[in-house]
Design a protein around this nucleic acid. Structure first.
Lengths: 338, 338
DNA sequence: CGCAAGTTTGCACGCGATTGCAGAGATCGA
DNA sequence: TCGATCTCTGCAATCGCGTGCAAACTTGCG
């Protein structure tokens, strides 16, 4: 890694018999170079195996082309799906994605953002966890764009993309009731992220409006295992629920498996279930889960679009923009009727 | 992105009343600075919100700290798991991961590697797809480390990490036969990657050694849907197989679902199944799939270890190293007996 | 106190690029 | 033929940092 290995613009210039500036201009779209010069430069570059050094370019331009993706639980279906979509769009926009994996410990998002700053990332997209306000401020002050996905929050400055979690949760109550269910329950994790809590509140509120009280259980992390554990508890209660809304598809899968294989309950005949995210597994025929679809592509494209276009921040306070997307109900077979 | 926003080492030096070199040395581990100077520098840095510019540093050091991860099908369980593990280890090693998604475009691995070169990545880890030989050569010549995971290939130079796919496939034949199965089949995708083909060859060979002919079907991409489609075809044949080895867990899940829900077959009573990868879903109780575990952590740590340590390339020909890891059979409930 | 050895520190150069500025040609109309 | 205008091109400054080298300072010991 120590010996010099790459041809520099200098050497290309020498070989092509032009100045270094000419080389630079050849590789800068929209710069003024004559066709002849350009040809000779390209030829020399090819011969020498020249590749623009983005580090140096970023240094001068004050724009690295790097976008940081800050995310925990990368291996989770929903997260990896979003990640996939984002990287694809970023690449198309001529940016490059730097992936920072945060665990759930606190302070790890801050470390990630600091890393982003050190590489002078043009922007950061936060898929999980919340940055400390001071760090977020630092990012913003330093001209870095910040996008928060599904982290509803009043932090000023960044772009915030959220779903209508609250309303969606209300809609599923209707579906449950229409299916004849009366003993409603909500399965949540202890994570307590804004979107999860919004789903819970929306569900409870809508049920309450119909005079139904919801049994809420929060347990563990937002995964399959937690779903099993919650089912374990809920289904052994005297007053067993006949409809459960799980805050997440993973929870729902775990719940359904335990309900069927351990309690021999038939879904949806004896128990109605719904989830949220519409991960791939929800459509697998073993689950066939009715759920809400995260508009992953829309989320990703909104984010990238906002990063690419010098967004209209003429808005006086530069208070940041907030986008609210719709989570569509995907009707499958885990609720009666339909 | 245009106005200058960050404090430079220069300004920190001024505020601390020292030279710029002192600042630089303070942030360079192992450099010679007195405790007093260091303190004043750190204080000034804190006050000014100074953060080392890794772009500039990388420029000087000829070592960016960037490692490129080149991968397709990011949203797939196995890939995202590996990705997760890799980024975590890279971060611990003080490197940073640049994610390049090679979906939906051909020649994209080459473009990706070129991108890696332009950012002067210290190394690239290729999880999918094969680079053009000439590009790979370019990477190597330019001092970039190259790691190929599960792309068995005789390309010289890089580190190659592979599993004992061939032997593993042989072991599952034994298990099937012991369970009393005689009509063996192999479900593969058309992808034809080295590891998939090795599994197929190993399976066919081991069966053939026992005088059993294997029915092989290749179809579609390596996912759930392909598994369903293959099951559809295989199970409508006159001579229906009683044991199927799927090249991938995703294929196996699709296969199992179709076998059960559409052909009303009982697994493992009427049909034995096995997969490969040990994705999370394989352990879900709806599938409870017997499969081979990819040693994901081991793969990741081998890769990162090799990148971090100036590996012993004193090996005369610098022919590249090849690591072969063991895929352990995880026995669950989709094969009779055990 | 004097000198050798060791520790810090500052200077100045280089890394590989972009870009404002001004000069050199080229084109064109009168 | 002569400016005037326009297109190219090279010069040199700059971005933020690392590091060899030599000067300055500190320390220890006789």
């Amino acid at each position: 890694m120590s010996e010099k290995v790459f041809a520099s613009a200098q050497e290309v210039a020498a070989r092509a018999g032009v100045s270094r500036s000419a080389v630079s201009r050849t590789f800068t779209p929209g710069a003024s170079v004559s066709a002849e010069t350009r040809r000779r430069v390209l030829e020399a570059a090819e011969a020498l195996g020249y590749h623009v050094n983005e580090l140096a370019r970023g240094l001068m331009r004050n724009e690295s082309g790097i976008v940081c993706l800050i995310v925990s639980d990368v291996a989770t279906p929903y997260r990896s799906h979003l990640l996939c979509e984002l990287t694809l769009l970023l690449q198309n926009a001529g940016k490059v994605a730097m992936l920072i994996n945060t665990d759930r410990s606190n302070g790890s998002v801050d470390r990630a953002l600091r890393q982003a700053i050190r590489y002078r990332a043009d922007a950061s997209i936060i898929l999980s966890g919340m940055p400390d306000k001071s760090i977020a401020q630092l990012c913003l002050r330093s001209g870095q764009r910040l996008v928060l996905i599904n982290r509803d929050d009043e932090e000023p400055g960044p772009l915030r993309i959220n779903l209508d979690d609250y309303e969606a949760a209300g809609r599923i109550v209707t579906a449950f009731v229409r299916a004849g269910c009366r003993r409603l329950a909500f399965a949540n994790s202890e994570a307590g992220t804004p979107s999860l809590m919004a789903r819970e509140r929306g569900f409870v509120a809508a049920a309450s409006a119909l005079g139904i009280e919801v049994f809420v259980e929060r347990h563990g992390w937002t995964g399959y295992e937690a779903g099993k554990a919650i089912a374990q508890r809920m289904l052994t209660r005297a007053e067993r629920p006949d409809a459960v809304f799980c805050a997440t598809d993973l929870l729902a899968c775990g719940f359904m498996d335990t309900a069927r294989h351990q309690f021999a309950l038939s879904v949806p005949n004896q128990l109605c279930l719904a989830g949220f995210d519409d991960i791939e597994q929800a459509s697998w025929s073993s689950y066939n889960l009715t759920t809400f679809a995260q508009p992953v592509s829309a989320i990703a494209s909104k984010a990238v679009e906002w990063l690419s276009h010098p967004q209209p921040e003429d808005d006086s306070t530069s208070q940041g923009q907030s986008i609210r997307l719709h989570a569509e109900l995907v009707w499958r077979g885990s609720i009666r009727g339909g």
